[in-house]
Structure formats: C-alpha cells, structure tokens
C-alpha cells in the first residue's frame, strides 16, 4: 500500500485494527465547502468486517467524511476534496475508477428511510437489475428474498411484496433500505444516523441487524446517540470542528477516553 505516511491521532493503534484487515485508509483528507474547511487533514484506518462509529457534535465533519467514502460529495458543486482515500488499497479518486461501480460497492443508508415509491419487491430488485447482478428472473427473486431475510424483514412482508414500500412503518422502511443496500453485494455500508427517526423498538431492531451482518461487511455508522455507538461499534472515532480528535476501541473510548475533548463530549460537558 502506497499510502502517504501520516501520523494517526491515536497511540497505541486500536486492537480491532490489529485483529481485522483494514478496508479503508484515508490520508490527509481535506474537504472544503466553498471557503469552509469542513474536514482538516484527516487520516484514519477503518477495519473490515466490523462496525466503526463516528461521533461528534453537529457540524464536526463526521457525515461529510462518510460521504467522501462513496464520493457523494462529488454531487455538491461547492465541495472540494483533497488527499487520499483508499478502499482495498485502491484510490477512489483514480481516473479509471467508475463512480457507479464504487457506489455499488459502498452502500448507504440515510437518516430518514427513503424507499422508492415502488413495490417492496421492486425496491430491492432495482439495484441488482441495473448492475446486472441477477442473471434470471429466478435469480432476482432469490436475491430479493435473501436480502429481505438478511435485513430481518422477510417474515413481516413476505405476503405483500407487491405493496408499496412506502406503506411500511418507519422501522420497516429503514430495514427495507438496508435490504436494498445489501442486495447489490456491497463491501462497505455507510449509515448516516439510521435510527434517529425511529422509535426505541425499531432502533433496537436495526442495532440487532447491524450486529448480525457485521461479520460480512465493513460498516460505518454516524450517530448522535453515544449509547448506540457504544452498543453497536467496535471502533469509535470522535470528530470535532473538522478534526479527528480521537480514535480507539469502543470499550476504551466510552470508559476511559484519552483526550479531554472526547471526555467532555461523551460525558455531556460540551460548550
């Protein structure tokens, strides 16, 4: 890997990074929205087959960085990204890299569930179809069923796959969105506050789902709930004012963080 050597803001290296392979490597990443310097010289390693949580107050840059990973910031005219982001050692800003392919590898789930205004079946089938993943109709059906099963939604919707995705409850819609993301066989799943619009039971279901699928994906979750970060993740990164302040194994970050800013934030002493 030809990553620029850059000091990571953590010492020692989190144990989870030693245990797992590294999926994403970012070195000296800067993001500007016009004049605003939203992310400052960020360097971070993200483990594969584990859940990493990004925490921090609003405007700290955590969602901005999340959106760098599947180049969603490309769609914002004023946004400018510098530095290196490698997925499996390959720079995602390489000219020969197909952004559409990248986004198939890097799925995303948003704060508010956003199913397509189509049937439940079509919501899932859409991605595999346009990416040419399904070879036959039977193949496609299998993908839909499997994705719904992995997302823990199949039993609830198996008799109404032709109903509109928007007819489901909020929590079910969010699981539908996760099923939709899973359907195209992504390697990375980005979740931007996936539970903030859900009630506690629906949130717990999503957390349970994340826990079940984490063995197979590199998952990054942005959350405002410290308890949620503590529950679902193995690695936690704390952002503040565009800086990555501290990164560490989740169990250490919530019991004995090293940095004072992290400590003040997670204990509710900020500002």
């Amino acid at each position: 890997m030809d990553a620029t050597p850059q000091k990571l803001p953590s010492n020692p290296i989190p144990r989870i990074l030693a245990e797992k392979e590294t999926k994403i490597v970012a070195r000296d990443v800067n993001v500007y929205y016009g004049d605003k310097h939203a992310i400052k010289h960020l360097s971070i390693d993200i483990p594969d087959r584990a859940v990493s949580a990004f925490i921090g107050p609003s405007g700290c840059g955590k969602s901005t960085f999340l959106r760098c990973i599947n180049r969603m910031n490309d769609t914002i005219p004023s946004a400018r990204v510098t530095g290196q982001i490698l997925v499996d050692g390959k720079d995602i800003h390489d000219r020969d890299l197909d952004v559409v392919q990248l986004r198939a590898r890097v799925g995303m789930v948003f704060q508010k569930p956003n199913p397509f205004p189509k049937s439940i079946f079509e919501n899932i089938a859409y991605g595999p179809r346009i990416h040419g993943i399904a070879k036959s109709k039977a193949d496609l059906e299998e993908i839909v069923v499997n994705s719904l099963k992995k997302a823990g939604l199949f039993e609830e919707v198996k008799d109404r796959l032709s109903h509109s995705g928007t007819s489901l409850s909020g929590g079910q819609q969010q699981r539908l969105c996760i099923a939709r993301a899973i359907a195209v066989n992504p390697e990375i799943i980005l979740m931007d506050e996936p539970c903030s619009a859900l009630d506690p039971i629906a949130s717990a279901r999503i957390e349970e789902l994340i826990d079940e699928i984490r063995q197979n994906y590199c998952i990054i979750i942005v959350t405002h709930s410290m308890q949620q970060a503590a529950r679902v993740s193995q690695l936690t990164a704390f952002f503040h004012l565009g800086d990555l302040v501290e990164i560490g194994d989740t169990e250490d970050m919530f019991t004995a963080p090293k940095n004072k800013r992290t400590q003040d934030y997670i204990t509710g002493r900020f500002g």
Binding site: A230, F254, T255, A256, Q263, I266, T267, G268
Partner: peptide, 10 residues
C-alpha cells in the same frame, strides 16, 4: 437516568 460515560461512569 443519566447513562453515565467515561469518568462519570467510573
């Protein structure tokens, strides 16, 4: 009530 973290929890 507070779900304490870090040194508060300790």
């Amino acid at each position: 009530k507070r779900q304490p973290m870090a040194q508060d929890l300790r």
